[in-house]
């Protein structure tokens, strides 16, 4: 059982013109997978389907090779952080431990309190009195304290300042020291993923338009920058997508090394995930990669 998650032929239709379609998606054990895309692209929908929050869909989802009907078993091993969905905020961290103790067989009270101490969270303070960043840290501490094998996180670092974000990413890296662990996280903050993600999945308008390793994407793709006249000299099949700006054209190209050889005098910059997103979503001449 090498796969943490397997999705086949998933289709979720919302009445108002939005459909999530995932014909095939596999998430390997021991990897960090980043899910990127615009707001409303389908990231949260996908996560909700995985977790059973949305349960009316076509297709098959297996977590740790267990299908939906046996979902109860798989959930012992899943740690979850969602966007603004948590315990009633008049409760306190110490209440969380009391409650979770009866919910998860593997809840580790000492581990939880260690995290609280590490993050400077008082067990006696009501959740509603915590700052956004601290609240997120609490949610993450809660997710980690029952020692899950899979972390599913929806925007775990949104609203956090860079220092806190770095702390949390280091936490995830520590979690991944165990090769049995897997992380699936959705985020807008693509810089977080550029370093630590093993795989990047790009969702746009309900479809997965890119699913590759971080290296394949960042080492391979590039942005060719040139003026209008030069733009016309670029071969059409080399242009994956482009954006026309006031003073330049920015073209998404693949196979940076060969492109640089072919277009010797042109500037081909390295790409960031943000550039990739923008060019793929807003650029002209879009193609499906894969």
């Amino acid at each position: 059982m090498n796969n943490a998650i397997e999705i086949k032929d998933l289709i979720k239709k919302y009445d108002d013109k939005f459909t999530l379609k995932v014909p095939k998606l596999t998430i390997t054990k021991g990897t960090i997978v980043g899910l990127i895309g615009e707001n409303g692209a389908g990231k949260t929908t996908l996560i909700k389907c995985l977790l059973g929050i949305i349960n009316k869909y076509e297709g098959q989802i297996k977590i740790f090779s267990k299908e939906e009907k046996e979902e109860y078993l798989a959930k012992e091993d899943i740690g979850v952080v969602l966007d603004n969905m948590f315990f009633p905020d008049i409760l306190k961290p110490k209440d969380i431990s009391i409650i979770m103790h009866d919910i998860y067989k593997t809840w580790d009270k000492n581990l939880f309190y260690n995290y609280l101490q590490k993050f400077n969270i008082s067990p006696q303070t009501q959740i509603k009195k915590l700052s956004t960043g601290t609240k997120k840290k609490l949610e993450i501490a809660t997710a980690l304290s029952h020692k899950p094998k899979l972390l599913i996180l929806d925007e775990p670092t949104s609203g956090l300042d860079p220092v806190v974000r770095r702390e949390i990413l280091d936490l995830f890296l520590e979690y991944m020291q165990n090769p049995e662990n897997t992380i699936l996280l959705s985020t807008h903050i693509t810089t977080d993923l550029e370093h630590i993600a093993d795989y990047i999945i790009f969702i746009n308008k309900g479809n997965i338009i890119l699913n590759a390793t971080r290296d394949e994407i960042l080492d391979n793709y590039g942005i060719l920058k040139c003026g209008e006249q030069e733009f016309n000299t670029i071969a059409k099949e080399d242009i994956i997508s482009y954006q026309k700006n006031r003073y330049d054209y920015q073209i998404l190209v693949k196979d940076k090394k060969n492109m640089q050889k072919k277009y010797k005098n042109f500037i081909i910059d390295n790409i960031t995930l943000e550039d990739l997103m923008v060019l793929k979503i807003k650029g002209a001449n879009n193609e499906r990669i894969n």
Partner: peptide, 11 residues
């Protein structure tokens, strides 16, 4: 607190 969504993810 949108607790229901979170609760569903529990065993």
């Amino acid at each position: 607190n949108k607790w229901d969504s979170y609760a569903i993810t529990l065993p």
